[in-house]
Design a protein around this nucleic acid. Structure first.
Length: 280
DNA sequence: AGTACAGCCTGCCTGC
DNA sequence: TGCAGGCAGGCTGTAC
């Protein structure tokens, strides 16, 4: 379940190894095309657009990884729930569920591996109509300078939803998923079902600080490989932040702060873990 | 317009 | 042991 910190880690790992490489071909070993790819492109068009392009730089936007190419267009990937990216030497056996392979001019290839098919790959072309709107509709990046307390206050005050649901909404704030929303709310001592527009000034200050702190800590720890053990960084290794989780997947265990048993409940169709004593 | 929710998907775990 | 059913949660489309 790669969220902002995981995609950031993968981007940082991959960038030095793929920048400057030329995509010589793209193949689909399982012949099961990925969601957006199917919706926006025919496979031959997709391959034709990519053949011969050079990777100029990588960027992360929310949970999307974007490869900026020359000539000007971008290749956008979302790893969904179970996606991984692996850079491998050409000719080494494919990992199971390798769905797309981007072949480079130096004998390496980038593999998009995704058991559950929640992942997406699509192209953003300079010719406007061909690009899905997904990326343009995203909310602010929580680690950018413009994500101020004022900015967060505005987002919270115009919402009538519970805070947990709001944090998960990519159109409100980009990049936060279920792991980090739980951890952020615990750090900020806010109950997941509090209505967003009832947070007072102190709550908002703590929430703002917690959002940045947790996401930064998670990046410093190379992301979270939770119980399903699916997430891998750009080098194929597990993250370290799972060792620092305070509430996520800790239902039934004692809170590290007060010893109260961690509870979990469904909030907006998602599981939310929290401490009934610490989070108000 | 803003919000809520089912549905997509497959591996893994639990309970019978 | 084997199998059914529930769970995990990224996002989209649809309904209210």
């Amino acid at each position: 379940m790669p969220e902002l910190p995981e995609i950031e880690t993968i981007k940082n790992d991959l960038a030095p190894k793929v920048i400057g490489k030329i995509i010589t071909n793209v193949s689909f070993p399982l012949d099961s095309n990925i969601r957006i790819l199917r919706r926006f492109h025919s496979t031959p068009d997709f391959i034709k657009e990519l053949k011969g392009t050079k990777i100029q730089f990588l960027r992360r936007r929310a949970k999307y990884l974007v490869f900026y190419l020359i000539p000007s267009k971008s290749l956008v990937m979302h790893l969904g729930m179970s996606g991984q990216l692996r850079l491998k030497k050409t000719g080494t056996p494919y990992e199971p569920y390798t769905r797309a392979v981007f072949h480079f001019n130096n004998g390496t290839e980038l593999r998009f591996i995704d058991p559950r098919k929640f992942g997406e790959i699509f192209l953003k072309l300079p010719s406007l109509q061909s690009s899905p709107l997904t990326l343009d509709r995203l909310g602010p990046e929580p680690l950018e300078k413009d994500f101020s307390i004022t900015c967060l206050t505005r987002i919270l005050q115009k919402s009538r939803r519970v805070i947990k649901t709001l944090l998960l909404d990519q159109k409100s704030i980009a990049g936060i998923g279920n792991i980090y929303s739980d951890e952020i709310l615990f750090n900020a001592k806010i109950h997941p079902t509090r209505l967003a527009n009832t947070l007072d000034e102190d709550d908002i200050k703590r929430l703002h600080r917690s959002i940045r702190k947790i996401l930064k800590d998670a990046i410093d720890n190379r992301g979270t490989t939770a119980a399903d053990k699916r997430y891998r960084d750009g080098l194929g290794k597990v993250g370290k932040f799972q060792k620092k989780l305070k509430v996520y997947q800790r239902r039934g265990k004692p809170c590290f702060s007060c010893g109260t048993t961690i509870k979990s409940m469904r909030v907006g169709g998602r599981s939310a873990s929290f401490c009934t004593h610490c989070q108000k």
